[in-house]
Simulated scan of single mutants.
Amino acid sequence: MPHYRRVGKIPSKRHTTFRSPDGSLYAEELMGVEGFSADSALLYHRHLPTAIVDAVAVEDFRLPLAPNHPLKPRHLRTQAMEWAGGLDAVTGRRSLMGNADVHISFVVASAPSPLYRNAVGDELFYVQGGSAVVETVHGALPVAEGDYVVIPTSTTYRVVPEGDLRLYVVEATGHIGPPKRYLSSRGQFLEHSPYCERDLRAPDEPLVVDGEDVDVLVRHRAGLTRYTCANHPFDVVGWDGCLYPWAFHIGDFEPITGRVHQPPPVHQTFEGPNFVVCSFVPRKVDYHPESIPVPYNHANVDSDELMFYVGGNYEARKGSGIGIGSLSLHPAGFTHGPQPGAAEASIGAEHFDETAVMVDTFRPLDLADPASTCEDPRYAWSWARRGPDWD
């Protein structure tokens, strides 16, 4: 993260004597990325964070993926998926798509999740509906509809929903953060960035929990392991540094507009290993007197485009059957664009009321079985309005 935070009790100097009221030393834990050559946080535990008493391999809740073959644009309807009650935001996730760089899933959760630690990469949540508290080793972070939440690699956390929580989950095999072009060489957001430090939220006080023989589910490159920790991981009395979970509301993204249609990079919000995330928000649209505000037909020759529609009316997709909760996949090798009539209908528009989260990947996205259960089979033919499954 681009700025320093200090939470709870810490000593004045790193790696020096820091004692609890009973005289014992607090145990330091340095969380750092890139071999401790980049961002880090220094946490002070009441007990040894290294103390585990058991480790057991457990079955993975992720599902196998298969290529998008034959190559087609896809429309998935998360709003049509059926969900059992009592699911949690970790083990209840349903895999939708993924590749070697990123895994994308969705869940409707109502129960607290187990303690979880993803040691493979950062996680990015988008809260489509509901609210929750994300409890972490750094403290608690309340989140609600419209929030993005970034969970750094190997952060121990759990999600406690407040009612039903609709959560879109992007799991990386590396780190997720603001695009480098938005940041100075020292990590400050620059003036041209569409959001800045004032828009971010992070834990502001420790979350100290007692407990013994506490289970933590850990994702690693070989699968899932359940540790039993001698003490509860949430025993941190203070921490400081630049590596921590944080939240950012999509409504605080300030759109960049122009006289004619602007390309998708102006909407970029995050970058990850071989993928980017963009936010399309309500905005003033192109103001050239002859502009066509909806996107032109385009071929993403290096990437698959996955759009999650979360609010308003997406002008370019009118007539396609897409609604709130839909996901559209437009793969590399397919030329896509506005639905028939959308370009003409958009001429003269001054404002678009639409909210969407886009993930562009630079390797093809494969599909999981749940994707087929909520797919609209007519979507691929919606530009021609004829073809298989078309009435």
Rank of each mutant, 00 (worst) to 15 (best):
V7N: 04
P11K: 01
K13T: 11
L30F: 11
V33G: 04
A41R: 04
V53F: 01
V58P: 01
R62N: 11
P67Q: 14
H69D: 11
P70F: 03
T78C: 13
T78F: 06
E82S: 14
R93F: 09
N99C: 15
F106Y: 13
L115R: 15
V120M: 00
V127F: 10
S131D: 06
A132I: 15
V133K: 05
V137L: 11
H138Y: 08
V143Q: 11
V143A: 14
E145M: 10
V150L: 12
S154R: 01
D164P: 10
L167N: 06
L167S: 03
V170H: 02
S185L: 13
L200I: 09
D213W: 05
G223W: 10
V236Q: 06
F248V: 13
P255W: 07
V260H: 09
Q262N: 11
P263S: 13
V266C: 08
F275D: 03
F280R: 12
V281T: 11
K284Y: 12
H288F: 13
H288Y: 06
H298K: 11
F308L: 04
E315H: 15
K318C: 07
S320E: 08
I324Y: 11
G325Q: 05
L327C: 03
P338E: 11
E344Q: 12
A345H: 04
I347H: 03
M358G: 09
D360R: 15
S372I: 01
W381N: 12
W381E: 08
R386Q: 14
